[in-house]
Write a protein that binds this DNA or RNA. Structure first.
Lengths: 238, 238
DNA sequence: CAGTGGTCTAGACCACTGA
DNA sequence: CAGTGGTCTAGACCACTGA
């Protein structure tokens, strides 16, 4: 696999910036100078520098040139893999246990539920995720039947949702295009504590995710993990 | 501000994919067909499709063409703003209180500390973040004096670190290029609980971040927030 | 107002790969 | 093996903006 010239140029400067050889605010050579240096056309150099700008390593300004960007603290990449996949990646057996399943209307005054339902009804699914048989997380999920009518049959019917639970089923059938995830800590409620096998008030990581497909809300899910059993990792860098 | 043609093409297809009009696995027109449709050269079309691929909305394969990608669950963008900035953005007064500051060698057997020190010594800074005077987070920080010798004088000297604490000082003086953040939940220790004004064992959100500048480790910081006072938000989508 | 990057053209050759 | 995208060229015109 031969690397392309534009990627070589991009990687050259990415390395020099990350090594600190080029400091924030420093100016890179102009496109014309780089054409000369690398013996290539301006489009090739432009592609390399545009890619560096997209990575956030440089900032490009007309007349002023291409400057090494000041690092941004925001915009780290958060890995949020499918729970079943993550458990199995660690060599453990994964299982989802459906505890309760009911169809209902959104609760009045619950703005999140009303917006999710979009005038239709909701499917409420409570379940428990297990790793090697041990409880890993309690999950409360609401699914919009307006957006995913097929879910009623899947959850209540003979066929079922499969071993991996409603999250994986939804991913396979109705992939989302937008998502928002909120992460916080909270003490386990008595009910959650009983299911997880911890004391009430035990420090838990709470992950709440809403997903959409275009404008249409699909699902709202809240997962509660005992803090010592789960963590999330975010990275910024190469 | 006139939008460029390649961005118009990119936005056209991004909208159609997000609306669900084009489903995962569907094939986009070939570059040649798009040249015809938009009356432009292939480079322009190529730029638009390459950008869509970088966004993760399409996958490009030779011979097979450009296909709408199956959504990925990973790779959400996590906002990790400067704590001082985030508190002020909510209209509250921010303050950092330095509780303890000492210079020491890394503890033997603590692999993280030894790697951070890189043969040199460490500065240990304990502090409390406040929002409107109320404790928001306890912070334990280690800084590599090999990487940031100026920090000794800044922290121990007359000048001090400024109102915003060592995190903001470091950002201004030694911007990082790589970072790893680990997020979990844990019960407050007795010491943490006393500082935060909560009960011991109270559910707290723990954020642990390591930063590097190129190959050089800069700092390792652990922040502990009462769960009800702080949450993190990650987004995927437009 | 001169230098910079942004965009675009109309070609070209090629590697890859699935019909 | 034909069609696809990947890459690259050698130009061009232009908008923007900071010296």
């Amino acid at each position: 696999m031969k690397t392309s010239l534009h990627d070589t140029i991009r990687a050259d400067f990415a390395a020099r910036i990350r090594a600190g050889e080029l400091a924030p605010g420093d100016r890179l050579p102009t496109e014309a100078e780089l054409c000369e240096a690398y013996g290539c056309s301006r489009m090739t150099v432009n592609k390399a520098l545009t890619a560096l700008a997209a990575e956030g390593l440089v900032e490009r300004r007309k007349r002023a040139g291409t400057l090494v960007a000041h690092p941004r603290v925001h915009a780290m990449v958060l890995d949020v893999p499918d729970l079943a996949a993550r458990v199995r990646a660690e060599g453990q057996a994964y299982a989802y246990e459906l505890l309760a399943c009911s169809e209902r209307s959104p609760q009045r005054g619950e703005a999140g539920e009303v917006a999710l339902a979009a005038g239709g009804r909701l499917l409420a699914l409570d379940g428990l995720h297990r790793a090697n048989g041990r409880p890993l997380a309690v999950e409360h999920r609401l699914v919009s039947l307006a957006a995913v009518p097929a879910m009623r049959e899947a959850a209540l019917g003979v066929e079922g949702l499969g071993e991996d639970g409603p999250g994986t089923w939804l991913l396979r059938h109705i992939p989302w295009t937008e998502a928002e995830t909120r992460i916080t800590a909270a003490g386990a409620t008595r009910e959650e504590a009983a299911l997880l096998g911890v004391a009430a008030g035990h420090a838990c990581l709470c992950i709440e995710r809403r997903t959409w497909r275009g404008d249409e809300a699909i699902t709202l899910v809240r997962q509660v993990f005992p803090g010592e059993l789960y963590d999330l990792v975010a990275r910024f860098g190469p």
